[in-house]
């Protein structure tokens, strides 16, 4: 179940990256001109979403791995 949650946070992270790139990919922000309000907003919101996704993804992943350790899975024997 929490694996689905981690995937959801990963998708939020990807959406943040899309939002940062969107003004330039869709051509609404021409190169070499001052950023419009829409571009500024998209970049800031996208950066925020990316940061949230990044922090949330790795916090959740760290908790998942900590649970695996706490469950007492023994060290794997190298073959």
């Amino acid at each position: 179940m929490s694996r689905l949650g981690i995937i959801g946070i990963g998708l939020l992270f990807a959406t943040g990256i899309w939002l940062v790139a969107a003004p330039f990919v869709t051509g609404q922000q021409p190169d070499g001109t001052t950023w419009t309000a829409a571009t500024r907003n998209d970049v800031i919101a996208g950066a925020l979403l990316t940061l949230l996704g990044f922090a949330g993804f790795f916090t959740a992943l760290a908790g998942h791995i900590a649970d695996l350790y706490a469950r007492g899975a023994g060290p794997s024997v190298p073959q």
């Binding site: 929490s2 939020l12 829409a38 979403l49 959740a60 998942h64």
Partner: peptide
């Protein structure tokens, strides 16, 4: 911690999503 982190991240993202829905009207695109 991971459950709390997941819920907090998703809730904050919901806030960002709501702002994105309002931004075209708020910033007069």
């Amino acid at each position: 911690t991971r459950y709390l982190a997941g819920v907090i991240t998703a809730t904050a993202a919901l806030g960002v999503g709501t702002w994105l829905l309002l931004a075209p009207y708020a910033l007069d695109y």
